[in-house]
Nucleic acid binder design. Structure first.
Lengths: 266, 266
DNA sequence: CTGTGTGAAAGCTTTCACAGCT
DNA sequence: AGCTGTGAAAGCTTTCACACAG
């Protein structure tokens, strides 16, 4: 795909695997809950259950951070909370801007988990002049014209895009031009960004479609081979030959726990 | 972790890799856009760019579905749209219930991409009696008491949880008991479900935390080794020795495109 | 004895690179 | 000529299972 990326052989050292990074927030949440209940220590088994993973994985994950446990005992909750927070960069506060204050943007602005762990909503931005000044979650919405100014003045480096798909790339370009280097995209579009900018995306309909896939599989297994529910089957537009057989009924689908989100570093 | 899962040796056959399944919706979206512009065929290179992946990956992915392309030419857009839709189970309509109609639930109810591709919002459910009857996105909200009835009568198998964290597990249990077998969870909690039920989760603050991690890395690289921004560093509660050194400045972080969501089949 | 930390094995996923249709 | 389909190589991730610290 065009560019080609330098394919750096990995500078080694403190390279925490991406899969592990993606689970750290999970552990952190579980640990925070324990901390609130004043639980002093926890074993890998207990913590793993609370976080919804298995203990081997958890121990391996923690081993990348260092040896923070005590053999025969477990992990010190407070200490781990601090170590993971630090590793994730949550010991500092990250100002965040949310662009696109529709239902979703409002939901994000109101989301408590935001403010609690290291993030601060620095501004809400919307293209609708009618929204300007209106407070959402206690923060007055500002107009898109102010975008660059807001980002620069607040030293914002993380932006959340909650606009309609059509506006996303444009907003993204402006965010990046203004100095944003991490973007969380809720719009159902592929964003193109320059090298060095991270984009993570959250996509409703994609998640649903993946569920539908598995749901269909389950139905197929139960009834053996429904072959294709009765009904209007749009005929293949071209006279391709079917690869070999029909939609085979098979495969006892049931993957293990898998879990690995995405980073697309530009 | 309790259960232990039968560890089936994979029944082989039509087993499409999970990573591939997770990308099919992406391809489908790109293809739908092409279809709307009446583009008849597309090469793996073009389609891959539109979907934000590389062409080798795309071809490999398609190879699991069958040989739907034409060498020297590319893929027939309409035909591929149909094949992928069918593979994902989108040729049938999936009724969906959304539980928890706050800002987020409302955003989901209003989300167009929902209705467009194979999904139909069968009902909106909320625990607040004051919401009952109030229409959101043109659909009247129903009270939680009706939950079981709604699911049974509409043959709903997919549920979306958009409640506060505290209510999520309880709602989940009721959904499952009523016959739901796929859940999309927006509440920041680990859900426990019986075997055979798929759960996918979307978690705002987790995504942000992952971004913060990478953001921190970037900052660290620029300044070489900030060692720990000045300020109150909560001292390790216990006198553990630091693993070896401070937060080493290193590792030219820059993973390849990676992308792989999660299924946690119970 | 208990539960961590970790090499080594087993599985997945991605990338390469090229044979083979059209 | 051009572009798909795919074995084989290279990377990641997860799981095993056990030495060893407390």
């Amino acid at each position: 795909m065009a560019t080609g990326r330098t394919h750096r052989p990995a500078t080694r050292s403190r390279g925490i695997p991406e899969a592990t990074v993606a689970r750290l927030p999970l552990y952190l949440r579980a640990l925070t809950a324990l901390s609130e209940r004043s639980v002093p220590t926890v074993s890998s088994e207990e913590l793993a259950t609370a976080a919804g993973v298995n203990s081997a994985k958890l121990r391996k994950d923690f081993s990348y951070l260092g040896s923070y446990g005590t053999r025969g005992v477990g992990y010190d909750v407070e200490y781990l909370v601090y170590q993971i927070s630090r590793e994730l960069g949550l010991t500092q506060d990250w100002p965040v801007v949310i662009v696109g204050i529709g239902n979703l943007g409002a939901a994000l602005a109101n989301y408590g988990g935001f403010a609690s762990r290291g993030f601060r909503v620095a501004a809400l931005i919307d293209a609708d002049p009618g929204m300007a000044g209106k407070p959402v979650a206690g923060i007055p919405v500002q107009h898109t014209d102010e975008l660059e100014k807001i980002i620069t003045e607040n030293g914002v480096s993380i932006g959340v895009i909650a606009t309609p798909a059509g506006a996303a790339q444009q907003v993204c370009d402006r965010l990046v031009a203004a100095g944003i280097t991490s973007i969380l995209n809720f719009a159902p579009t592929v964003l193109t960004v320059p090298d060095g900018v991270d984009v993570r995306k959250v996509d409703l309909s994609i998640e649903l479609q993946i569920l539908a896939f598995h749901e269909q599989r389950k139905a197929g297994e139960e009834v053996a081979a429904p072959e294709e529910a009765a009904g209007a089957v749009p005929p293949p537009p071209v006279a391709h030959r079917a690869p070999s057989a029909g939609p085979g009924a098979d495969s006892g689908r049931q993957g293990p726990d898998g879990d690995v989100p995405a980073v697309m570093p530009a």
